Structure formats: C-alpha cells, structure tokens
Amino acid sequence: MQKPRWLSTDRFSLSWPPFDMAHLRLAVRATSAALLAYGIAWALDLPKGYWAVLSAILVVQSSLGASVAVALDRGAGTVAGGIIGVALAMLAGPSQNLTVLLLTIGTLATALLAAYRPSFKLAPVTVVVVMLADPTHAQPLISGLQRVFEITLGGVVGIGCALFIFPTRALLLLFPHAADAIDACAALLEQGGSGLLDGTLDPAEVDRLNAQARTTLRAADLRVGEALRERAGRLSSAPDAAPVVRLCRRLWHSVIILMRVADQPLPQSLSDPVRPSLQAAVAALAMECRDLAESLRTGKAPTTGMLAATGAEGLAQDERLSRAGAGVAAAVAALEAEMDRAGAAGLLRSDGASLTRLYTAVSACIQVAENLNELSAQMESYRSENA
C-alpha cells in the first residue's frame, strides 16, 4: 500500500497536503461570498455589517450539503440566542448589576443548550452580542433583530455562492474516502496472508492501515449526512450513497476477522497443503478491492452519472470489473475445494487452535468475497439509476 504523497517518511517532518483545484474553488467561493455580503451590507447601511460578511465566509464549505448544514446551525443559534438576549436585555434595563447577573444566566443557559444540541453553538455568542452591543440597552429589540438579520443575510449569501459558484456536491467528496478505505482493506488482506503463511505481518503497518480505514469511513459518514441534506433540500437528485459506505465498513470488518488470526504463522503441516490456493485467493481479493477503489475514485459523481458506463471506455471498465469478479469467485471456490480435499485426505492435522485459525481465515476470505460482490452490485445500481 503506497503511503499518501503528503505523508513524509521522515520522522521529524511532515509535508503539506498537495494543492488541487478543489482548494482553489473553495477559496473563490469564500471570497465571492465575503465581497457580495459586504456589498449588500454597505448598500443597506447595516450598523454591524461585518456579521453578515463573517457569516457568509463561515457558511461556505467544501460541499453544498456542508454549507446548508452550517447555515442552518448558525440560523438556529442566532434565533435562539437573539430571543434570549433580547428578553434578558429588556429585563436588565440600564442596571449594570442586573446586566451582569442576567448575562451570566443567559450565557449559562445557552451554553448548556449548545452542549446538548451542537446546532445551537452560536446561541451563547448571540446572547453576549445582543446584551453588550448597546451599553445603554436603550433598544435591545432593534439590536437583536439587526444581529439576526445580518447573520441570516450572510447565511443566504453563503448558500447562494455555494450553489452557483463552482458548486460541489457531497458525493464528489464522499466516494474518494470510500475508495481510500477499500485500498486499506486490500493492503490489510495482503498483510493477513503474509502473517498466516510466512509470519511476516507488520503490526505497525496494520495499525496504520486500520487507522486509515477508520478515519476515511468516518469522513465518508459525514459526507453521507451532507448528501442527505442536499437531497432533503432538493438541491440534488443523486441516489443515496449510504449503502456504499455501509458495505465498505462491512468489508473492513470482514478483513479484521482475518487479521485477528494472522498474528502468528500457521504450522507448516497446515499451511503447506493450502498455501497456493490461499495465496491466490488473497491476491484476487486484494486486486478486486483495488479495482473497485479505482472505479470509485475516478468515476463521475452520481449527480452527473456516477460510475456510468458510456462508450468504449465504459465497456472496458465493465469488462474489467466482470473479469475481476469472476477471478475472485474462482479463487475463493478453489480455496474451499482445496480445504475440502486436504481435510478428506487427512492433511490438515494440527492442534485445535491452529486448525480453527485456518478455518476462520478461509471463512473471512469468503465473507470478503461476498462483500465485494455486493459492493460491485451496488455500484452497478448507480450506473443504472444514472444512465
């Protein structure tokens, strides 16, 4: 498994991630949102227009779904904090002592609300802004309404820029994460086969690969949530990608079953009869993982025909996946047949624990093959839905 380009092998240095066009597009969206919000705030002569500019910049995220989520969170926090702040400011009046007391109560209440519901994390900030923006507290209602309007304006501008300036759907960012997790599974399979047959498993590399799978699947889960928000807001008609992420996680869990019995080599009396077939099965499974990962990583987004096979290139991809799937099925079937033959011939003689480890490893290979087959079928469904 090749390490990411940005991860240096030097223990004393860590290079920056590579720059790509997605970073530039995000920067352009954020800058456009800031300038547009500033222009509107200036035209409307808003007293604290910088709140609109800040909100617009914060709302613009890497995907449209993430932008919607941030805008909704800021809106919810602003409205809640604005209502509480206005009410407390009107109660406090010009009294400094009462202001301090109510500010403490309001901040504590909204901070507890934000801790319970993270979507209200802006509420404590809004309470403080509303209560302290005007030291005389002469017009707390007007002050609160202005803050709500300014932050709402920034949210609308941010979503508009996310929607119309280099729009990026969440699925474009989701599938590369899933592909990275599948690549990690391929490398783990190879580590497991080496550990079982030769005792050359590298624990440090296994830990790194498991961490990669865990991190990338969590990132994919976040993108699934963003994609669901896009669908709920009718901003995208792409099919639900959650099944792909679930299948990737099941695949990883099946690989983990193999890794649990690969920490030490099998006795030679067990490994010799099944070595060729087990090596072939592991190699075929790892190759299929990498083929599927590459298809996910380089395919088009579902919103524009994700993994849709068109023309000669599409046919070549279909044929490659078909041959790889047939090769996996044949390799796993050969492994099962070899296990049956060796068992019937009395070649699989060893202590019970070692024999259990071997059968567990073979069962894990079968499960991995089934998961890969389901994942391939799920990808085909994306083709048909976006053809």
Rank of each mutant, 00 (worst) to 15 (best):
Q2S: 14
W6K: 00
L14E: 15
P17Q: 11
F19H: 14
F19M: 09
F19T: 11
M21V: 12
R25V: 00
A27D: 10
A27S: 15
R29F: 02
A30E: 01
T31R: 08
Y38A: 13
I40D: 02
L44D: 04
V53F: 06
L54S: 03
A56Q: 01
A56K: 02
I57Y: 07
S63R: 06
A66S: 14
V68L: 15
V68A: 07
D73N: 10
D73E: 10
D73P: 00
G75A: 09
T78G: 08
A80W: 05
G82I: 00
V86P: 04
L88C: 06
L88P: 02
G93Q: 06
G93E: 08
L101Q: 00
L102N: 03
L102Q: 03
T104M: 11
R117V: 05
V125G: 03
V128N: 01
L132Y: 10
P140D: 05
P140N: 05
F149P: 00
F149A: 12
T152I: 02
V156F: 15
I159S: 07
R169F: 10
A179Q: 12
I182Y: 09
A184D: 12
A184V: 10
L188R: 13
L189M: 12
E190Q: 15
L196Y: 01
G199A: 02
L201V: 04
P203E: 14
A204C: 00
A204D: 13
R208L: 14
L209M: 03
N210E: 12
N210C: 06
A211D: 09
T216L: 10
L217S: 02
L217M: 04
V224C: 13
A227W: 03
A242F: 01
R249P: 00
L251P: 01
L251D: 01
S254A: 12
V255H: 01
Q264K: 13
Q268K: 03
S269T: 14
S271Q: 11
L278R: 09
V282G: 09
A286W: 09
M287L: 03
T303C: 11
T304E: 13
M306L: 15
T310Q: 08
G311E: 00
G314S: 07
R323H: 14
G325W: 05
A330D: 15
V332A: 05
D340K: 11
G343A: 09
L347V: 02
L348K: 07
A353G: 02
Y359E: 05
A361R: 09
V362S: 03
S363D: 14
S363A: 15
C365D: 07
I366N: 05
V368K: 06
A369K: 03
E374W: 04
R383I: 00
S384E: 11
N386I: 04
